Simulated assay, not measured.
Amino acid sequence: MRLLSLFLLACTTLASAGEPATAPDKPGFDAALAQRTGADDYGMRRYVLVILRTGPTPVMDPEARKAMFAGHMANIQRLSKSGQLALAGPFDDTGGDWRGLFVFAVDDIDQARALVATDPVIASGEMVAEYHRWYGSAATLLVAGLHETLARKAL
C-alpha cells in the first residue's frame, strides 16, 4: 500500500511539473474593480486612441462654429457617461494641426469610427480622425469619474 501511495505521489508530481504554479493575487488587488474596468492580469486593457487633426473644411461662420463646438462638447459628455470614452482633451499646440484626442474603451477601430462619426467637428469636416490601437492601464476608465470630483465648473 505504501508503495502504491509513493507511486501515485510521484505520478502527480510529474504530471504537474510542466504547469506553472498559480501565483497568489498581489496585495491590494481589487478583483471587482478589475472586472468592472475590463483589466487583464496586468491591470491593462485594449483601447482605441484617436488623434483629431485639422480637417479640410474649417467652419468659418462664428455662430455655426460656436454651435458645432457646443455639439462637440455635448457629444464628449454623452460618450463619457456611456463608458465608451475613457479620456478626451485638446492639444495645446498653437499652430500645429493636432487638435485633440479621444481614448475609447472599445474592442476595435470600426467601433471607434462609428462613435467618432457622431461628433459635429468630424461631420462638418472641421477635424479628421486617425485611429490607433492602444494597450494601457484599465485605470484610465476611472479618469472621467475622478474628473467630476475635481471640476469646479462644468465644461
Results as ranks from 00 to 15, higher is better:
T57C: 08
T57E: 04
T57F: 02
T57A: 10
T57Q: 05
T57G: 01
P58H: 01
P58E: 03
P58T: 13
V59G: 02
V59Q: 01
V59N: 01
V59L: 07
V59D: 03
M60T: 15
M60N: 07
M60H: 05
M60R: 06
M60V: 12
M60C: 07
D61N: 07
D61S: 00
D61W: 00
P62M: 00
P62T: 01
P62S: 01
P62V: 02
P62H: 00
P62F: 03
P62G: 00
A64T: 04
A64D: 04
R65G: 03
R65L: 09
R65V: 04
R65F: 05
K66T: 12
A67K: 11
A67V: 02
A67T: 08
A67F: 04
M68R: 05
M68V: 02
F69P: 05
F69A: 01
F69E: 03
A70V: 13
G71Y: 11
G71H: 02
G71M: 05
G71I: 04
H72F: 12
H72Y: 08
H72V: 06
M73N: 12
M73F: 07
M73Y: 08
A74M: 05
A74D: 14
N75V: 03
N75E: 14
N75C: 15
N75D: 12
I76A: 11
Q77G: 13
Q77D: 13
Q77V: 12
Q77K: 14
R78D: 15
R78M: 14
L79W: 12
L79P: 07
L79A: 12
L79R: 09
L79Q: 14
L79F: 12
S80T: 12
S80P: 13
S80L: 13
S80R: 14
S80F: 13
K81T: 11
K81P: 07
K81R: 15
K81C: 06
K81A: 13
K81H: 13
K81F: 10
K81D: 15
S82R: 10
S82C: 14
S82G: 10
S82V: 11
S82A: 15
S82K: 12
G83S: 13
G83Q: 07
G83N: 14
G83R: 12
G83C: 10
G83P: 10
Q84I: 15
Q84K: 15
L85R: 09
L85P: 02
L87Y: 14
L87S: 13
G89D: 04
G89V: 03
G89M: 07
P90I: 03
P90M: 04
F91Q: 00
F91M: 01
D92S: 06
D92G: 02
D93K: 00
D93W: 11
T94P: 01
T94R: 09
T94A: 08
T94E: 11
T94M: 06
T94K: 09
G95T: 01
G95K: 00
G96V: 00
G96R: 01
D97V: 08
D97C: 06
D97H: 11
W98N: 09
W98E: 13
R99L: 10
R99Q: 11
R99K: 10
G100W: 02
G100E: 06
G100R: 01
G100V: 05
L101V: 08
F102K: 15
F102I: 08
F102S: 11
F102N: 11
F102L: 13
V103R: 08
V103L: 15
V103I: 14
V103M: 09
F104K: 10
F104T: 09
F104V: 15
